[in-house]
Design a protein around this nucleic acid. Structure first.
Length: 925
DNA sequence: GTAGGGTTAG
């Protein structure tokens, strides 16, 4: 099977298929989901071109985008590919058809094909939905009767609700200054946004003006002289993103032909800057990239801008896609390209990958600059490696790069974050001295970092010294450093305004409001908002977001929605955080319909329903006792998005808590249908879910299933299972699990060992206890420690029982105490759990012992385990037989890989010989 | 004003 990479042009794929008529093809065309529909389109195209006998598969999309996005994207991308393809296939190079006619024909064909394509995903979707419906009906048939438990939950709900109401109402009844959020802040924000009509009118006028300009522009013939004059043909200066978009759309094809790559890049740059205020610019940027790809070759700036877009959208997969595709197109990444990649990777905390990119840069001779090193030093925050930061700083100096204030701040930050005492913080102060000597003035955040670190150490006096130092250095405080020294909310605002004579920024105001709300000083928050509005500052997304979130936390969705609607009038676009908060609010209230209305609105305004939000929604729905809630929610999510594997697994985790095997199975079927691989993590979710719901036999059922599928458990899973079975009545099952530690070569930790040994004591199985101690000895453990721990606990237990018996006839309340004590201490396990902290500390110094045990265990798993087979119980024996020794497995895997490589090499050779096209062929796997 | 960095948050 061939796997075609996404970077190949549609034509190349066609050629390839023509030359390899009998091959199965795995069409791995584009990794993002709007391209998923292109795959659908291409499949259809292939069928149109009589290649139906070729089996073309699409891959699953790693990114979930709404179908709305797909719909929009479909038009621009497919048109260009089809144009190219039609030009070559239908008309060749000699062009027998007069140009006007040709264009019309192409347009006709495209139009036809486009409408085919547009319909296709939806038709397919409909069919799928029907299947879903059936499955979901089946699933909901299996719902556990939730009402018994539900009643209890409702009561808890009631109590909480009452508490919240109390919390909100109390101040008013008492007439205290601290108020609920309601009237005060809320009303101000609402008042602020009255009168939407004048704004609308104003906008209409702007629209008209732009429209007129455009008409003028289009009518104007393009002056020929300007073409090569280097003067830009498209004017983006002093224009809003919206204006540029309208301008761009109005340009004729002929005019666009005259545009150079620089012009397109400029437009992309404008759109990028507009992305934070309106996510619709994401689609617009993709459209521009399509046009560039159609008309010419993008350059590194084009892709850098696209990657910067991905950086903003926090979409690393998308970014990697651009990074790969630009190299496929033989466009060389530059410093900026790498800086963007490194920034993104450091932000997700993968320091080693970031350093690998740095090495890559050095190998390729790509210059590093200040920004590169800032991010690399920043990566050391995550690895807690101050030395590495220092050495990177030295590397930087060696390369002749002059440090600036941000580099110093980062260095100081790395040092401060890892300092636990004044001595460790000293290098940070040295950096401050060094920068001052080099004539670089520290800024507020420089002091801020130090103050924060000192406060965390409990060094308040020193923190205040730094704050005073800042004032002496002529540096003005901001909301953050004031918070550092303990000033927040309204107090902080007044201090800033009256003592320091500083006009707070919009961010300062937002911080103050946030602080006040956090401290439940709602009247203060309202006052801050009043001052803010009075001073002519407009509330922005953050202001709204802070207050909406406060409402949601107070369980007041209607107030939150009022503000949401107010934002619309205020013409501020809600971001994914706001939507997410509101949707969660509705799910908490079990109002699924409203939640999904909001999701619809969210998608319509081009805010992506990201996996983070999807998973939050699922988690919130999970918390309801009523299992149908999460089923309903997930069902509807499936209809409109493409939830990731983790989302499925979260649902499985919750569903498994009901202990219903068929329900779990149905979700597994569903998961498979959505092309998600069912692997260890999937079973981990199911098994831990079963354990949480105390459905132990179901948990073991899935565990067995997992092993049947030749999936290997890890320590955490085995340990979890072992712990749930740590009761005398489950002792047999527990010993099977204990054996599995050895079969799978997983080293039990001290807690695991104690759990098993304690159960042996509880059921008085000396034989088993001895066996386990022998095994441990084989592994190189010092078994005396465990024996001592066991004996200590046993003694206590006996003592307590004795006491209890002796005191039986004394004072009544004392005996009640004893009975309660006994209840808590039934079983040695509980007793040990209470004390285990001590014992774990006692074992801490045994690192070498544990390392040796690991090695021994591996040997044991490979050889001894099988030799000792006779001693094992039957189900364990079966398991051992299923599992080859590790080294055998490695050998087999290597052999398989080699075979596949050989096959691929042969296939590749023939492919290149037959088709003289630039196609890379990868083996599957 | 073609693209990239630190301190804070929902």
């Amino acid at each position: 099977m061939y796997k075609l990479k996404y970077s190949y042009k549609f034509n190349s794929i066609f050629h390839f298929i023509k030359t390899k008529p009998t091959r199965k093809i795995h069409l791995n065309y584009f990794p993002t989901s709007h391209y998923h529909h292109q795959c659908v389109g291409i499949k259809k195209q292939l069928r149109n071109f009589n290649h139906s006998r070729h089996f073309v598969n699409t891959i699953k999309c790693p990114i979930s985008l709404s179908r709305y996005n797909c719909y929009n994207r479909l038009q621009s991308t497919i048109v260009h590919q089809q144009l190219k393809q039609l030009e070559q296939l239908n008309y060749g190079n000699d062009d027998p058809i007069p140009s006007g006619e040709k264009e019309n024909k192409i347009e006709e064909v495209i139009h036809q094909q486009l409408s085919d394509h547009v319909d296709d995903p939806f038709q397919k979707r409909e069919k799928e939905n029907k299947i879903d419906e059936v499955i979901h009906q089946q699933l909901s048939d299996h719902v556990d009767d939730p009402f018994q438990k539900g009643e209890k939950e409702n009561k808890i709900d009631e109590v909480i609700h009452q508490q919240l109401l109390d919390h909100v109402d109390d101040p008013i009844q008492k007439g205290e200054k601290e108020n609920k959020i309601e009237e005060a802040i809320h009303q101000q924000l609402l008042d602020h946004v009255d009168d939407p009509i004048p704004k609308g009118e104003k906008e209409n006028k702007i629209d008209e003006a732009i429209h007129q300009q455009l008409l003028d522009h289009v009518d104007d013939p393009i002056p020929k002289g300007e073409e090569k004059g280097g003067k830009s043909l498209i004017d983006v200066e002093n224009k809003t993103g919206e204006e540029v978009w309208i301008h761009y759309k109005s340009l004729s094809n002929k005019f666009k032909d005259k545009l150079q790559i620089k012009d397109f890049n400029k437009v992309l740059g404008v759109f990028l800057r507009n992305l934070p205020t309106d996510p619709v610019f994401h689609d617009r940027m993709l459209t521009i990239l399509d046009e560039v790809n159609y008309r010419m070759k993008p350059d590194e700036s084009t892709y850098n801008t696209m990657m910067s877009m991905s950086l903003q959208r926090k979409n690393l997969e998308e970014m990697k896609y651009y990074f790969d595709i630009m190299q496929d197109q033989k466009i060389k990444p530059n410093t900026i390209t790498y800086n963007i990649m490194i920034t993104a990777i450091v932000r997700i905390g993968k320091a080693t990958q970031a350093f690998a990119l740095y090495d890559d840069m050095r190998k390729k001779g790509i210059e590093r600059n200040q920004k590169t090193f800032t991010m690399l030093i920043q990566a050391c925050v995550k690895t807690r490696d101050v030395k590495q930061a220092k050495s990177l700083y030295n590397d930087m100096l060696k390369e002749g790069i002059i440090p600036d204030v941000i580099i110093y701040n980062t260095l100081i930050n790395v040092t401060a974050r890892n300092a636990t005492n004044l001595k460790e913080l000293e290098p940070a102060f040295n950096y401050v001295e060094e920068m001052k000597q080099k004539g670089i003035t520290p800024i507020t955040s420089t002091y801020s970092i130090l103050v924060k670190s000192l406060i965390e150490m409990g060094k308040r006096t020193e923190a205040l010294q730094i704050f005073n130092q800042m004032e002496k250095d002529g540096c003005k405080p901001d909301a953050l450093i004031l918070e550092g020294i303990g000033l927040t909310g309204l107090k902080s605002l007044i201090k800033m305004r009256d003592t320091y004579n500083i006009t707070p920024s919009n961010e300062d105001y937002n911080t103050f409001i946030n602080q006040a709300i956090r401290e439940s000083k709602f009247n203060d928050a309202a006052e801050i908002l009043r001052i803010m509005l009075q001073n002519g500052y407009q509330p922005d997304v953050s202001t709204y977001s802070i207050i909406i979130n406060a409402h949601i936390k107070n369980n007041d969705i209607s107030k939150a929605m009022q503000l949401y609607n107010a934002m619309k009038i205020d013409n501020i676009k809600s971001d994914s955080y706001i939507f997410s908060a509101l949707i969660i609010g509705y799910v908490m209230k079990k109002d699924i319909d409203q939640a999904f209305n909001l999701i619809d609105e969210m998608l319509n305004s081009h805010v992506e329903l990201n996996n983070r939000t999807i998973n939050r929604i699922i988690d919130t729905a999970s918390e309801h006792q009523d299992i149908t809630i999460i089923q309903k929610v997930f069902d509807r999510l499936l209809r409109m998005t493409n939830p990731d594997k983790v989302a499925f697994e979260r649902v499985l985790w919750r569903v498994a808590q009901t202990g219903q095997l068929t329900m779990v199975e149905n979700y597994l079927i569903l998961m498979e249908k959505y092309n998600h691989k069912i692997d260890f993590d999937t079973f981990k979710s199911i098994i831990t879910g079963s354990c949480k719901g105390i459905h132990l036999s179901e948990g073991l059922y899935w565990y067995q299933k997992m092993i049947d599928l030749k999936l290997r458990p890890n320590h955490l899973l085995l340990s979890t299972l072992l712990r749930c079975h740590a009761e005398p009545k489950y002792s047999n099952k527990m010993f099977v699990l204990w054996n599995d530690f050895h079969y799978f070569g997983i080293l039990p930790d001290d807690e695991d060992i104690m759990f098993v040994l304690l159960i042996c004591r509880e059921i008085s199985s000396w034989q088993m206890e001895n066996r386990i101690l022998r095994q441990l000895k084989d592994l190189g453990y010092n078994t005396d420690t465990y024996k001592t721990a066991l004996d200590a606990i046993d003694l206590q237990k006996i003592n307590e029982e004795d006491n209890n018996n002796n005191n039986n006839n004394t004072k009544k309340d004392e005996s009640i105490q004893k009975i309660q004590g006994l209840k808590l201490n039934t079983g040695a396990i509980e007793l040990w759990i209470k004390q285990r902290k001590k014992s774990i500390n006692a074992y801490k110094k045994r690192e070498i012992e544990i390392r040796n045990a690991k090695e021994n265990l591996q040997k044991w798993a490979n050889k001894v385990g099988i030799r000792n087979e006779a001693k094992l119980d039957t189900s364990a024996k079966k398991r051992v037989n299923q599992w080859l020794p590790y080294s055998e497995m490695v050998k087999l895997r290597k052999k398989k890989e080699e075979e596949e490589e050989a096959e691929a090499a042969a296939a590749s050779a023939t492919a290149t010989a037959q088709a003289n096209i630039n196609l890379n062929i990868n083996t599957n796997n």
